[in-house]
Computed example of a mutant assay.
Amino acid sequence: MKKKIRGTINRPRLCVFRSNKHIYAQIIDDTNKKIITSSSTLEKIIREKIKKSHNCNAARSIGKNIALKSKALGIKEIVFDRQDKIYHGRIQALAEAVREEGIKF
């Protein structure tokens, strides 16, 4: 049985979705059912920085971007939701980039 991961106001959920071409990250407050902030390889600012949108370097830049956005909003702790994907490759690169920016999970 799958465990449901839920975020709170104090510790919102960082939900990561990975497709074959892109990677998306959203910080979600599950108590109010609102997306606080998001980042993906489809954003114009990120597309200018990266060459390919489906590698670990792109995932690292998304992780760094979402961490900077969340720190600007005062979020220091999150719950990591990888949506049953294994902690490996692009998911791991994104998570490590978020941790390097000082966000705890």
Rank of each mutant, 00 (worst) to 15 (best):
N57G: 06
A72N: 03
R13W: 02
K2R: 01
I62A: 08
L68A: 01
M1T: 03
R47V: 04
R99P: 10
A59D: 05
A95D: 01
K76P: 02
H54F: 11
I28R: 13
Q92P: 00
D29C: 15
E96A: 04
K64H: 07
I36F: 10
A72Y: 11
G63Y: 07
L14N: 01
L42H: 07
R18E: 15
E48F: 06
G102A: 12
Q92C: 03
N65H: 06
A67N: 02
E43H: 13
K49D: 09
E77M: 04
K85N: 13
I27M: 13
R82F: 03
R18I: 13
I46E: 09
E43Q: 14
N55K: 05
K44E: 06
T41I: 10
N65K: 09
S38R: 02
S39V: 15
K3M: 00
A58H: 06
Q92D: 13
I50S: 14
G102V: 13
F80V: 15
K104H: 09
I91A: 05
S53D: 03
G7I: 01
A93Y: 09
F105M: 12
K52N: 12
F17H: 12
K104Y: 05
A97F: 12
I62K: 10
Q26S: 12
Y24P: 04
F80E: 02
C56W: 02
H54C: 07
F17E: 15
R90G: 04
E77K: 15
I5Y: 00
F105W: 15
T41R: 07
V98G: 12
Q83D: 10
Q92V: 01
S61L: 11
I66P: 09
L14P: 00
R11L: 03
G63V: 01
A58N: 05
A95R: 01
S39T: 14
T8R: 07
N57L: 13
I78F: 07
T37H: 11
K34W: 10
I5W: 00
Q26L: 07
G89T: 03
G63I: 06
K71V: 06
F17N: 14
I66D: 09
T41L: 10
G102T: 12
N10P: 01
I66V: 11
K44D: 11
L73H: 06
E77A: 02
V79L: 03
K33D: 09
K33I: 15
A97G: 06
G74H: 07
C15W: 04
I9S: 09
E96R: 01
R6G: 00
T41Q: 09
N57A: 07
G7S: 05
K34P: 09
G7P: 02
R13A: 00
K104T: 14
R13G: 00
T41N: 12
K104W: 03
R99E: 15
Y24T: 11
A25W: 11
I103T: 08
L68N: 03
